[in-house]
Amino acid sequence: MVGKYDGEMGAVAQNIMDVTHTIFVHEGWFRSESGKAVDATIEVEPRQVVVEYHDHDADVGMMPWLTNPHGAEQVHRDSFFAPNITLVEYHWGEPSGMVFNSLISPVGPYESRVYTCVSYKFPIPKLIAKALMPAVNAYTWVVNNQDIKILSARRKGLENMPMTHSHSVRGDMAHIALEKILDALRHDQQLAPSFIGKRPMQFQI
């Protein structure tokens, strides 16, 4: 997929990496609000951020009967590789998984073009998997366009009332690290040692 987003490279990467927005932007399509706490581990290196989520019993998407018919534990990992690559992975045991690999190309101050490769493997016969391809493609396009719309709304908000100060919560740790890495790259500096390492992260979803 190729999509044009109303957002700078860092904002688009944060959107792709952000789990909590899915219950608002993609409600019913990708994830619905459960009210439960989610534990995660975030690991920050000088040029990458990797978040491992420990919501092993979660069902993501509209079709758990297709993605996870055997009820396997879910393995969910989001990664950012500076300056412009994200990798979102969902695995349900050996036979099933979906991977979203995106490359973000800046077009203007508040515009980016995103190239996304969606790979998937389901525990069903190959002929049925091929027959389902149009439905899977349509589903990923719907979710993609929801992100495009929400980033467009964000851009309009910034243009009407630019923020001079932003506020963060515990669930924003990955976004803060991502921006710190990009800021260090912009100024040809090293990421501060205080940001490097592995830490626990918890939020409600």
Rank of each mutant, 00 (worst) to 15 (best):
I124G: 02
S34A: 10
V19K: 05
V169E: 09
S168W: 09
T116R: 07
A184K: 05
F122G: 03
S119V: 01
S32A: 10
A192D: 15
R31F: 14
E179D: 14
G3T: 12
F81Y: 14
T140P: 00
V2G: 05
A153I: 14
Q14K: 03
E73N: 11
M17K: 03
A82R: 08
H56T: 13
Y139A: 05
Q74R: 15
R154W: 10
K156N: 14
L132G: 09
D59W: 05
C117W: 12
S96I: 00
M98V: 15
P83F: 00
I16N: 04
K130F: 08
E43L: 06
E45C: 08
K121E: 11
G10K: 02
S168G: 04
E27K: 12
A153S: 10
L191R: 07
N145S: 10
V50A: 02
D59I: 04
Y115A: 07
K4L: 12
A153G: 01
T164K: 11
N84F: 06
A40M: 03
E94L: 03
S79C: 10
R154G: 01
A131E: 02
G28V: 08
S152G: 10
I23W: 03
A37G: 05
E27H: 11
S34E: 11
K198F: 01
G35C: 05
H54F: 07
D78N: 14
E33C: 05
K126D: 12
F203W: 12
L127H: 02
P109H: 10
Y90D: 05
F81P: 00
R170I: 06
R31K: 14
H21M: 02
F122E: 04
D78L: 07
V143W: 03
H187K: 14
A131F: 10
